[in-house]
Computed example of a mutant assay.
Amino acid sequence: MNYYEIYDRFSEKCSKIITNLYTTSFSIGIFLLDRKIRKDIYSIYGFVRLADEIVDTFHDKDKHKLLYEFKEQTYRAINEKFSLNPILNSFQKTVNKYKIDTELIEAFFKSMEMDLYISDYSKDILKNYIYGSAEVVGLMCLTVFTNGDSKLYYELKEHAIKLGSAFQKINFLRDIRYDNFILKRRYFNKLDLKTLDEKELKTIIDDIQDELKFALRGIQKLPKEAKLGVFVAYLYYYSLLKK
């Protein structure tokens, strides 16, 4: 094993560590994926997690500057097929290996930027935000799952989009108090915690359930290497929605 291979293995382990530290649900789901694709999904989640931390956690830092630099480093890593940032090195390997569409990455960064200057999300703005923050992540993972099978990718694309959207909306409901009072963001701008509108809440939950139902049909068609892991993540989020 040469030194580049050792560094690549180190990079992959860093992405795995971030995933396991930050999320229980995805850690379990990824662990149940086939070993040959597991590290690629870790690399995608590690990348996404770092960007999330910039906009959600480092309140005493210049977030705009940090996100801009992270974005520049990401594209440089992809183009040069290397980065001294182990998380980006791991991510670029997956992007280049599966030829993940850079439009998905660009949409993701646009949504991260939205969190820096938008505090009250209208319905239309929220739709664009969810596409970039969650749906494209599902599409990146689907690119790995289908591994060059473009016919299967496009057959399952809408299902992956709905699953990503449902997961994100469930996260919004789970974190609504923190988002509202700490981050000063309202993703569901018609849902006021002080005067809870049960009708509006039911509308949101019904919408999520419809998305989950549609997504499940796609999960059933996934390659066997991915099906169990994604289904377990689905079950976790479904139970979280019920809670």
Rank of each mutant, 00 (worst) to 15 (best):
D192E: 04
T143P: 11
A160S: 15
Y68E: 10
F109W: 03
L201T: 00
D62S: 02
N147I: 09
K190M: 00
I176N: 03
G218M: 03
L21R: 08
Y234T: 04
C14N: 08
I130H: 02
A134L: 08
T23Y: 04
T74Y: 03
I125W: 01
L50H: 13
L196D: 01
R174M: 00
H59G: 12
V136W: 03
D101F: 03
S27I: 05
L33Y: 02
P223A: 04
Y98P: 07
V55Y: 11
S25Y: 05
D101W: 00
L222I: 15
D175Q: 14
F231D: 05
Q209S: 12
F26E: 04
Y131K: 15
R38F: 04
N96S: 09
K99Y: 14
K93G: 14
F109G: 08
I87D: 00
Y45W: 05
E158F: 12
I44A: 03
M140N: 01
I6R: 15
D179N: 07
P223I: 08
A215N: 09
K194R: 15
I87A: 04
L142F: 07
E80V: 09
N189H: 11
Y131E: 12
D8A: 12
D34C: 14
K213A: 15
V137K: 06
E53H: 11
K39C: 06
A226Q: 09
K127Y: 11
L183G: 01
L240P: 02
K242V: 12
Y234E: 04
P86A: 07
K93H: 15
S15C: 09
Y238R: 14
I100G: 01
D175T: 14
D210F: 11
I18F: 10
F10I: 11
S119F: 04
I87K: 06
I44P: 02
G132L: 08
K151Y: 10
D62A: 02
Q92M: 10
G29C: 10
Y236C: 08
E113S: 07
G218S: 09
T23K: 00
V136G: 02
I205T: 13
K13I: 10
D124I: 03
I219R: 05
Y234S: 03
R49W: 00
A166R: 13
L193D: 00
F91M: 03
